[in-house]
């Protein structure tokens, strides 16, 4: 089996000198083809690609991503189509690919949950997926998923929130693989105007605990280069940006070329801000 690309990426950078940008796109938004084009456009500016497989009832997502899901469903997205698209994307990139979805999407198509999980992670691995974030799977419920992920060499990436208590944090760090997805605010996904003090504090707190174990990427609410600088300066290893990119898609639904160009402009401004902060 080829090496997991997330593990490889961070092994090369043990001292955590690099700063990582993980943009998020919803598979199938606004159409299957345009989604593939957008991934290709943003790939050169990103270090890890995060791709959402939509769920009908995403409770941790704000209106921006819900609308993206809706467009994707209308374009005919489902798990099978999404993984086919990812397989194609994989041919054009060696960068790690991380899936974001909800648990119910992963437990379909088999009698037992174990079998369903093994089936889907096997397919993901074959499609070139390296990691997965599951919006509604806390550590208490993650036993079977951890086992299946380990078997198929996929990093199960856990979320940590500002509300996560210290003893939960310890437990999560013990089983996490790849990196930590740190939620920067007490809220759902969606672009925000400012980075709150709570975000800087939580980054410092989590970084202290994870220093030598896992990189910390920060997401939720980040939408501007100045946010990126603040977050990197607070000690994060990288940023995750979703809703701000999806807003660009939404604004340009009638002009796919401009959509691509604007996404590229945005991604390069983020990458630039990260370099400046370094």
């Amino acid at each position: 089996m080829e090496k997991n690309r997330i593990i490889e990426l961070f092994e090369k950078d043990q001292e955590r000198k690099g700063k990582y940008f993980m943009p998020f796109l919803t598979a199938g938004d606004p159409t299957i083809n345009q989604f593939k084009k957008l991934v290709k456009a943003i790939e050169p500016y990103s270090d890890i690609l995060e791709i959402g497989i939509p769920f009908s009832d995403p409770i941790a997502d704000g209106p921006t991503i819900q609308e993206a899901n809706q467009r994707a469903f209308e374009a005919g997205i489902n798990t099978k189509v999404a993984l086919e698209a990812i397989k194609e994307i994989r041919k054009g990139t060696g960068k790690p690919i991380v899936i974001l979805t909800y648990y119910n999407i992963l437990i379909q198509g088999a009698e037992t949950i174990e079998d369903a999980l093994n089936m889907i992670f096997k397919k993901m691995k074959e499609s070139g997926v390296d990691g997965i974030v599951i919006g509604d799977l806390p550590i208490e419920e993650a036993g079977l998923t951890l086992k299946a992920c380990e078997k198929h060499d996929i990093c199960l990436i856990f979320l940590i929130a500002p509300s996560t208590t210290n003893d939960r944090l310890e437990k999560i760090l013990k089983v996490s693989r790849g990196f930590i997805y740190l939620i920067s605010v007490m809220g759902v996904t969606g672009a925000r105007e400012n980075v709150a003090q709570i975000t800087k504090n939580i980054i410092k707190k989590v970084k202290q605990k994870t220093k030598e174990i896992l990189p910390v990427l920060v997401g939720f609410g980040i939408s501007q280069p100045k946010h990126v600088r603040t977050i990197i300066e607070a000690g994060a290893d990288g940023v995750i940006i979703g809703s701000a990119i999806i807003n660009i898609i939404k604004k340009n639904l009638n002009d796919h070329e401009k959509m691509e160009a604007d996404v590229i402009d945005f991604a390069s401004s983020i990458k630039k801000a990260m370099k400046e902060a370094n």
Binding site: E140, I172, I183
Partner: peptide, 20 residues
């Protein structure tokens, strides 16, 4: 203790809700 009624129930909630 985990809120399971046999195989049903549980706490499939976002991490942010778990402390609450």
């Amino acid at each position: 203790k985990l809120g399971k009624f046999g195989e049903f129930g549980g706490m499939f909630a976002p991490e942010i809700l778990m402390p609450a």
